[in-house]
Design a protein around this nucleic acid. Structure first.
Lengths: 230, 230
DNA sequence: TTAACGTTAATCGTTGACAATATCTTAGTT
DNA sequence: AACTAAGATATTGTCAACGATTAACGTTAA
């Protein structure tokens, strides 16, 4: 597959974004979709050949992906999809606790009616997915839910920081278990969060979102059999 | 000046790090030291010539720096040192509030005796700098103080996230006023933080650190004549 | 004054080459 | 058969030169 195959207006894409940015986005997509496994080696020249370009843009994309934490670059050996350990996932959850509390507080103040409407739709869809025991679908919706929350804060720096962490957490998920279970409980927590947002109760929304992250982490630990004392 | 001029064991440096990493670090140093002004254009080929290299490593360093938020890359125009607006600095302070509260809580649990000793030394040095009205010196020590705090949390993800934000905040400082004043108050807040850490009182340390960030932001606003409602 | 045109300079991307390094293969030895 | 060492191979790191694309600027003409 070549990059030129992009469906919507490929010419404009190349005019606005450089090739290295397009390559970066494509590789990121491949990593996050699991198309490339964690730990896997990314061959510079074969990727270039696959995209129909030279090694230059691919190497530049690698450097950017390295800085964003998705790949690990080893001199004279190459580029590998990063493997996120349980310890590191745990550290990310620490951060998410703090950031999500902030998200809750801010979103309660800034969320628009439209955004809240979409949140409700996502809640219902997640219930449907839970009923059908469709874990993959739930996971996708869950990502969208939290991404919409952070996006509604209208704090650009918070948004990109948050998304970076979510991507790395996703690397951890890809590593082993697809999901951490407890879908029903999880969505009940989601509803409490949305309720607080509707009431524009920043304090409660922040606490609810933080508590949700704490419990998500517990579910992760349980799934991995990690001692709570770790 | 060529990169080969590095003082300590240049050969080993090149053997371990690729040239693009060295270039990245050097450009980052130039940006953060103010050697290159915010908004300034970074000429690809003249930088390459200056370092005595080809354009390849420089371009790769640019991509990494772009991802880290220190430069802005415009296709077909080039690379510019990012300019951080007051609005953006404000968003970063929002994040710092949340992160520093986390830092306070964690560091109270994890800080070693040695680390606390260094914190005390920094406190005293900052008092000295305040007495001498040496704002630049105070600022350096202040950076070291907060960096040591976050480093003492032993949470790698928190450390790199925090440092990234501090670097961008530094870009904002470079833009205009060197400092935000209120040195004496600031160091009194520092002492309260360290006291809570010594008592291993995580809750108080977190609150104190968060409060410190809130006040730092206020001092920044005051210096810029920004309305608190913004 | 404004619009069109051409020049210039920079980035973007390609290609081909070579060196340095890592990895795999193979032959030889114990 | 197992281990070792030398050599072959593959990959990354870096460079140099080239053409294409684009943005910026100055000039000219209406």
């Amino acid at each position: 597959m070549s990059l030129g195959d992009t469906r919507e207006n490929p010419l404009k894409l190349v005019r606005v974004n450089s090739l290295s940015v397009l390559v970066q986005e494509e590789i990121e997509r491949m990593i996050l979709s699991g198309e490339i496994a964690t730990g896997e080696w990314l061959n510079e020249s074969s990727l270039a050949q696959r995209f129909g370009l030279s090694r230059g843009p691919v190497r530049e994309a690698f450097r950017a992906l390295g800085e964003s934490g998705l790949v690990r670059i080893v001199k004279n050996q190459g580029v590998f999809v990063r493997e996120v350990s349980v310890v590191e996932a745990d550290q990310i959850y620490d951060l998410r606790e703090a950031l999500d509390e902030l998200v809750g507080r801010k979103v309660a103040a800034t969320a628009t009616r439209d955004q809240i409407k979409i949140l409700h739709e996502l809640l219902d869809e997640m219930d449907t997915a839970t009923g059908a025991n469709d874990v993959t679908r739930y996971h996708t919706l869950n990502l969208r839910f939290h991404d919409l929350l952070v996006e509604s804060t209208a704090n650009a720096k918070l948004i990109i920081t948050y998304r970076r962490l979510i991507k790395e957490l996703h690397l951890f998920r890809l590593r082993g278990l697809a999901q951490f279970g407890g879908l029903r409980n999880s969505n009940e927590e989601h509803r409490m969060i949305v309720k607080a947002i509707e009431l524009k109760d920043a304090e409660t929304a922040g606490r609810a979102l933080k508590a949700h992250v704490v419990k998500s982490r517990d579910r992760m630990h349980k799934a991995y059999g990690v001692n709570a004392a770790d």
